[in-house]
Measured scan of single mutants.
Amino acid sequence: MAAAAAAGAGPEMVRGQVFDVGPRYTNLSYIGEGAYGMVCSAYDNVNKVRVAIKKISPFEHQTYCQRTLREIKILLRFRHENIIGINDIIRAPTIEQMKDVYIVQDLMETDLYKLLKTQHLSNDHICYFLYQILRGLKYIHSANVLHRDLKPSNLLLNTTCDLKICDFGLARVADPDHDHTGFLTEYVATRWYRAPEIMLNSKGYTKSIDIWSVGCILAEMLSNRPIFPGKHYLDQLNHILGILGSPSQEDLNCIINLKARNYLLSLPHKNKVPWNRLFPNADSKALDLLDKMLTFNPHKRIEVEQALAHPYLEQYYDPSDEPIAEAPFKFDMELDDLPKEKLKELIFEETARFQPGYRS
């Protein structure tokens, strides 16, 4: 834990890192770190609560700039109880001085990944967590956004079992017609939660990839272990087919990539493993919904509104309290091709509203 900075004593240090967030945020305490930044909790002297502050230093890398800009653009436009918001952003007053960006968010005690390492969940908890994931996802999908990296560590939890989806750095506007060349190379989302079509096709992607990830998360809540822990690309596919069985001819016809289709045709026939054999203690309604989410063919996979209306979630289902976005989200430009200098300018502009004396 960093010592509390005395008023006016300059930035606090946390594990050798400068955290320049005073005077409003003090009493910093280390939480963890990701690929390009550290997260601390801090005391907000204005709202009198502890908050989470993520320090991001992305400006050396085009990919990190892209992810940072995506996350900020999306989260500043989203407003939903099951999606983490941005409360404040701290950065230098000029673009030349801006080396880091500090993002202030609600402090959540833990995440689903940490929880599943230590606790076996009751059916009631599984049901409530799944409902909140789908409630947040309904809003995301209504904005025409794909999260693309749903996994237990991106689901934040607090002691009252509130759940918030975080990390929109890989999110995209849904565009089933656009052929994202190089899709697989830039697709760094965790393999275990990846839909089979991501490994088999490169053309376009749809909201059904997020539903697949939610199915993987439900299976993990039922058993405290990942359902498809593939060691590499082909191993991942083999794990999936080992449980779902061989795809039907109709399902194979959806695979545009001939090499991928021929690979699947070359494999020995596998039978589907019954879900109640894998999860003998699970609620039968939970397994019915799991089956509809972990469907090989993305066109037959359940959609988020149908999933919310499934009998497993009937005690929570309330369409009048499951809000959607006001308007579909649009990125003005494809960020993939922009140089990091341009992305830095866009991050600077996007964060201006939090600067003292800002006038829109």
Rank of each mutant, 00 (worst) to 15 (best):
K164Q: 03
V104Y: 10
S153D: 02
H141C: 10
L163K: 05
F129W: 07
Q66N: 06
F279E: 07
K330S: 08
R148C: 05
V188F: 13
M108L: 13
L258C: 08
T295H: 06
V214R: 05
Q119P: 12
I53V: 02
R194I: 14
L107P: 00
L157C: 07
Q249P: 06
Y25D: 08
P247H: 14
S29P: 04
A309H: 02
N281G: 01
N87C: 06
E305H: 00
E186W: 02
E314D: 13
D20G: 00
P356R: 10
A325S: 13
N257F: 12
N87V: 12
I90C: 13
H61Y: 14
E197M: 05
Y113V: 10
I89P: 04
M38C: 15
V51L: 10
N87T: 13
L134G: 05
R277P: 07
S208P: 03
I86D: 11
D100T: 05
I126S: 11
A189S: 14
T185D: 12
Y233C: 01
H141R: 01
D177I: 06
V39W: 06
T63I: 13
Y312G: 06
R79M: 14
T160G: 02
K164I: 15
G85L: 06
V173G: 11
P356T: 12
E71W: 01
E197C: 05
Q97W: 05
Y64R: 15
N238A: 07
Y36I: 15
A286E: 05
V304R: 05
D291W: 06
L170T: 04
C40H: 09
G16S: 08
V14A: 12
P196Y: 01
K54C: 01
S29R: 14
T159E: 11
I86R: 03
C127R: 14
V273P: 00
P58F: 15
P323K: 07
L76E: 06
S320N: 07
K300V: 08
R194N: 05
I133G: 02
L146R: 10
E220K: 13
T94V: 01
C216M: 08
L265F: 10
P152A: 11
T190E: 04
Y139A: 08
F129P: 09
V46G: 11
V46R: 04
A7M: 02
N238P: 03
K270R: 04
Y36L: 15
N123S: 07
D20V: 14
R67G: 14
S29K: 09
Y317T: 06
A189E: 10
V18S: 04
E334V: 14
D321Y: 15
I103H: 11
I84K: 10
Y263W: 03
S213C: 15
Q105L: 14
K231W: 01
A2R: 01
R277T: 12
P23D: 04
R172K: 10
G16P: 06
D167M: 03
P58Q: 13
T160E: 06
G245I: 03
P339H: 08
I140N: 13
L116G: 13
T68Q: 09
A195L: 06
E334G: 00
H178N: 13
Q17K: 12
F228H: 03
I240C: 10
G169C: 15
K292C: 07
T68H: 13
S29T: 01
Q62D: 13
L335H: 13
Y139M: 06
Y358P: 04
G136K: 05
Y187Q: 06
E96C: 01
I86L: 06
F348Y: 13
G182Y: 11
T63C: 12
K292V: 03
N224R: 10
L157F: 11
L264R: 00
K151M: 14
V101F: 07
V14G: 15
R70T: 00
N262Y: 14
K272A: 07
S266L: 08
V49L: 13
A195Y: 02
L112D: 01
L163H: 03
Y205D: 13
N87P: 01
L294M: 12
N276Y: 14
R15T: 10
H141Y: 07
G357P: 02
A6F: 00
P229E: 05
D149A: 15
L244E: 08
I209H: 07
L290P: 08
L313D: 11
L265M: 12
S266H: 03
L200D: 05
P176M: 01
N224S: 02
E60P: 13
V304S: 11
V188W: 12
I209E: 09
E314K: 14
L163P: 08
K231S: 02
I53F: 14
L258Y: 11
R353L: 11
L157E: 08
A4N: 02
